[in-house]
Nucleic acid binder design. Structure first.
Length: 256
DNA sequence: ATGCCTCAGCTCCTGAGA
């Protein structure tokens, strides 16, 4: 089976591209981030016609996440239990024998800012909750827009961007702490092209120049790791007209 | 260069994204 994650930067604008991508890439599960719409505006009918069940957790203007699945989504949980948050950033569900968590991590704006402090608190909240979630659901996948690079390999200009947002040691420490719960970066389980990124700034022809960051990730639990057969970033949708600034990341799993 | 795009909205500018 295949699962994917994609920050689509407004579902209102990107719905046709999501449907086109699903038609060409009929994944079993797709996690979406940055819907930028409320639940009452979510296009359930369009996804039903495309053959997908959907669970959404929307919000006006900002944030908003959803899960699409070929098979029913059950035990849906919105946001991080135990972490009080007024932003719609996390949605979890059972899909077959998997626990799927889709997440839109805070941006953080700038080290030292209030938004950076919120990002750190959110990461701690996520980790505290995931510890018990992993214990309850050994076969777990956590995918989404993490807004953090693992290391300089994920950064087009590690010197120029040293200690800037997405690249600070504090953020990377938090990411390693998530890994330490018993998770693996599916992308690095395989040989990958050099300078592989999942996000490119809209400005300055950044995509054409491949000036990007790898900030969209799929982490798999220990129990799931042996089932992973492939993981790749699909740059094709970034070449569309009016693209999202992010590209989808896709993982392939053997059946249990 | 507090810029460069893109999107939402209390929409002809501003805040936020990353």
């Amino acid at each position: 089976m295949k699962l994917a994650t994609w920050n689509i930067n407004s579902l209102n604008v990107r719905l046709p591209q999501v449907l086109d991508w699903l038609a060409a890439n009929p994944v079993d599960v797709l996690a979406l981030q940055e819907l930028k719409l409320t639940d009452d505006k979510f296009p359930f009918d369009a996804f039903t016609q495309a053959g997908y069940h959907a669970a959404c957790f929307g919000q006006k203007t900002y944030n908003g996440v959803a899960l699409l699945s070929r098979t029913p989504l059950t035990n849906v949980v919105r946001n991080i239990p135990g972490f009080d948050d007024d932003m719609a950033r996390v949605i979890s569900a059972d899909v077959g024998d998997l626990r799927v968590v889709g997440a839109y991590f805070p941006n953080g704006q700038e080290p030292g800012s209030d938004k950076f402090d919120y990002k750190m608190a959110w990461l701690k909240g996520l980790r505290d909750w995931l510890r018990s979630e992993l214990a309850a659901h050994p076969q777990l996948v956590l995918m989404g827009d993490y807004n953090i690079t693992f290391d300089d390999t994920d950064v087009w200009d590690p010197v120029g961007l040293k200690d800037t947002i997405h690249c600070t040691e504090e953020e990377r420490y938090q990411l390693r702490a998530l890994i330490a719960l018993g998770l693996h970066d599916a992308f690095r389980l395989f040989e990958q092209p050099e300078k592989s990124y999942s996000w490119w700034d809209y400005r300055d022809f950044a995509f054409r120049r491949n000036r990007g960051l790898r900030i969209d990730h799929i982490l798999v639990s220990h129990a799931l790791k042996p089932r992973v057969t492939a993981c790749a970033i699909d740059k094709a949708p970034r070449k569309n007209e009016r693209p999202s600034d992010h590209a989808p990341v896709v993982i392939e799993l053997q059946s249990a």
